[in-house]
């Protein structure tokens, strides 16, 4: 009988293999892509940096940054939840700011610098926020977790930059790190398992270490 660990590895391998197949079959070269008018190409070359690596891609204009990361670069840590900017599972950092990768086109990020969960930390070299999520059990199924972690890392930077929030009492006072502030600022990341209280504890611990 196969051990659960072996099953997990084979599932992951299968995912990578099928993603590669889809890309080969589903990404025609620019010359062959659909066009509306003879001169209008529906594909574009774009180059940006992902987790420190400079990359060039030839993409159908419709490709979201999320799909470019997952289906073209096989960085499947970034998750597709709703694909409409409502859940936050696709949160990545672009030029240091958190955004929904599902609601932006890859071709709009020429020259940009993108950091995904894979770039924040790796097994054996975890980002403090990743370690804190493990320590505080800040997840159950784990699907929203990469988005939660990317979002929380950038969120603490936003507080450091003195960006106010909806629950900030005094707009002219320095931004504070409180549970209420963390909850409000993380409201763009939905966790349907309901691990919120542990997520707040994990973020609070990292924030405490920073200040």
């Amino acid at each position: 009988m196969q051990s659960p660990g072996a099953l997990e590895i084979s599932r992951r391998d299968l995912l990578v293999a099928s993603a590669a197949t889809v890309t080969v079959a589903g990404a025609p070269s620019l010359a062959h892509s659909q066009t509306n008018t003879p001169e209008a190409s529906t594909g574009t070359n774009v180059s940006f940096t992902v987790n420190g690596e400079r990359l060039e891609l030839e993409l159908d204009n419709r490709t979201t940054l999320l799909d470019a990361l997952r289906e073209h670069l096989y960085l499947t840590g970034t998750k597709k939840g709703c694909d409409h900017g409502q859940c936050g599972a696709c949160t990545v950092l672009v030029d240091g700011r958190r955004i929904n990768a599902c609601l932006t086109l890859a071709v709009m990020h020429e020259g940009g610098s993108i950091t995904t969960i894979e770039g924040l930390g790796q097994p054996g070299n975890l980002h403090p926020m990743q370690a804190a999520f493990v320590e505080h059990d800040g997840f159950q199924c784990g699907y929203c977790t990469p988005g939660q972690i990317c979002s929380s890392v950038a969120m603490l930077e936003e507080i450091s930059a003195n960006i106010p929030s909806h629950v900030t009492d005094d707009l002219m006072a320095p931004a504070e790190i409180t549970a209420a502030e963390i909850r409000e600022r993380m409201s763009g990341n939905i966790c349907r398992c309901g691990a919120y209280s542990n997520i707040v504890e994990a973020i609070t611990e990292v924030a405490g270490r920073k200040t």
Binding site: G85, I99, N100, S151, P164, G188, N189
Partner: peptide
């Protein structure tokens, strides 16, 4: 400021 901060999420407001 207040109206903007009452809308959307941190990720969306960044874009």
């Amino acid at each position: 400021s207040r109206a903007l901060l009452a809308g959307a999420s941190g990720q969306l407001r960044n874009r």
